[in-house]
Design a binder for these strands. Structure first.
Length: 485
RNA sequence: GCGCUGAUAGCUCAACUAGGCAGAGCAACGGAUUCUUAAUCCGUAGGUUGAGGGUUCGAUUCCCUCUCAGCGCACCA
């Protein structure tokens, strides 16, 4: 006895015994008067007034001692101890024998403090709210197997308060962003996930099909082009917290579906976006963590203060010691060879330069830094820099070598926009697969006139990782993609 | 996609540079116990060692293939 089937059989037997006693092991409702934390917060008054509290939760620990039993149940707010004794329950005390760790029960009783000082509910009435048929993981070590954590997240959440805390913080972060933007008159919108053409980023899409229209559709890799249509439409401040889908590899910072917020503000430029994201993240850290100096991946990072701004080409000069603008394509390729930078399959000067940037610059940036003014070739949706036509008004926010945000002064010149798309098509002809297709409908919208606009995309998952000190994206996504078992 | 590492009871882990009946704690089951704190005490049961094949008298252990995961690389705004 004690294979998994035996556990189930034993518990089913207990469930049937409950039924025989006229108790429904899966009743419809239980009225809760207090949560566990309500009880801790108000315990003096509850004890003084002898208030009858009604509380429910899952049995996590059970210590049976003959005519007395101590049980710890966990509700949405935490653990609380129950004291069950034959003196208070009488004949119903027998039902304790039908309980198992993992069962969800509801009890009524008065609050008291034990001799050892633990706040406890002395149970007068008890009922099973859901009989559990499978054993929970071990009480002390919980779940260690990461695969099990991801595949059976519910068990991870039951057993591991850290996991629970991480996802509550994720909620807090997203709520903070919403509140922050709503207070500043941004309008939250929803745009299509199923798109007839994909754009707004460089990535491989997922393809799907609509049967009734007999139409191929892509799961969005970005919502950028739709949000800017809304700017054209006069929704001058919009944002969407969007699930995006990219058909690419999985690693510590990439999940095929992930959450990105994109924010667009009419009459603003990329400097405004720098101010916005810097202030947003700083205020968020203060409100949610109560501090701006954080520990991440073995580094101490100060989020407060004015974040450094470094020109893209200057950054390459600083860390790679070359001036790529003074080098022709052959010299660039030679440099890549010498430094073992793989540019296989990279088409176009811009992508080669960007590869040098990725390999030699990104890793070296630790503190929050705006890398600004990227090359035009790799930024088809960004506006030409007001002082230099080879660059665009764009920035990437880097922290510890990872990108957290990408923003531009949005390109609103429809003629230039068409040229940029056409350049993308040229790259495709040369063999580059990841290009942004010409989107005529989008160009038409631009031709009606889009105000000068600042736009930014912020990776929510990575931001949550940063603020919860998690090194893998799977730890901040409730159900990360794993291979089917 | 490539490389390395791992998978043993429901869970957490053992089984040693050497191939010899697969073990413990928690959980479970039976019993004792009316203020316990990872409760305690006595007793019982629980395994196709991820799957498949090979070597061997004998494989958790050695070899091969596969599956899944972690890490690294590649890919990746």
């Amino acid at each position: 006895m004690a294979g998994i089937d035996e556990y189930r059989e034993q518990r089913i037997k207990k469930m049937e015994q409950l039924k025989e006693k006229g108790m429904n092991p899966y009743p419809y409702k239980f009225d809760i008067s207090h949560t566990s934390s309500d009880i801790f917060e108000n315990q003096e008054k509850l004890i003084q007034d002898k208030t009858e509290v009604s509380i429910a939760g899952r049995i996590m620990l059970m210590r049976r001692q003959g005519k007395t039993t101590f049980i710890k149940i966990k509700d949405g707010n935490g653990l609380i101890q129950l004291y069950i004794t034959i003196n208070l329950l009488g004949d119903e005390y027998e039902n304790v024998k039908l309980l198992d760790i993992g069962d969800i029960i509801g009890v009524k009783g008065e609050v008291f403090v034990t001799h050892r000082g633990e706040t406890t509910v002395a149970v007068k009435k008890m009922e099973v709210l859901a009989k559990s048929l499978l054993p929970l993981p071990e009480k002390y070590h919980g779940i260690q197997d990461v695969e099990l954590k991801y595949r059976k997240r519910y068990l991870d959440l039951i057993m591991n308060d850290d996991t629970r805390h991480t996802f509550l913080l994720r909620r807090d972060i997203i709520k903070f962003i919403r509140d922050y933007l709503d207070q500043r008159d941004f309008v939250e919108v929803e745009t299509p996930v199923l798109q007839p053409r994909y754009g707004g980023a460089f990535a491989k899409p997922f393809l799907t099909h609509h049967n009734a229209l007999d139409m191929d559709l892509y799961l969005r890799i970005s919502d950028e082009l739709y949000l800017k249509r809304l700017i054209v439409g006069g929704l001058e401040r919009v944002y969407e917290i969007a699930r995006d889908f990219r058909n690419e590899g999985i690693d510590k910072t990439h999940n095929p579906e992930f959450t990105m917020i994109e924010i667009y503000q009419a009459y603003a430029d990329y400097y405004d976006m720098m101010d916005l994201v810097q202030n947003l993240i700083q205020e968020m850290a203060k409100k949610i963590l109560g501090k701006t100096k954080i520990e991440y991946s073995g580094h101490e990072i100060e989020l407060n203060g004015s974040w450094e701004r470094i020109d893209y080409y200057e950054a390459i000069k600083k860390f790679a010691n070359i001036d790529v603008r003074k080098m022709d394509d052959d010299e660039l390729k030679k440099f890549c060879d010498e430094h073992e930078i793989d540019i296989e399959g990279k088409i176009g000067r811009g992508k080669i330069i960007d590869e040098i940037f990725s390999e030699m610059v990104e890793k070296n940036i630790i503190n929050p830094t705006f890398v600004i003014n990227q090359p035009k070739e790799i930024s088809p949706l960004a506006k030409i820099h007001r002082d230099d036509e080879t660059k665009v008004e764009r920035f990437e926010l880097l922290i510890l070598g990872t990108e957290y945000a990408n923003a531009f002064s949005e390109l609103n010149d429809p003629i230039d926009q068409r040229k940029r798309f056409e350049y993308q098509m040229e790259l495709r002809k040369e063999g580059e697969m990841e290009v942004q297709e010409i989107d005529e409908d989008y160009l038409e919208a631009m031709e009606y006139g889009m105000p000068p606009t600042g736009g930014i995309g912020i990776g929510i998952d990575r931001l949550v990782m940063l603020l919860t000190n998690r090194e893998t994206i799977k730890d901040v996504i409730l159900f990360p993609l794993l291979k089917a078992r």
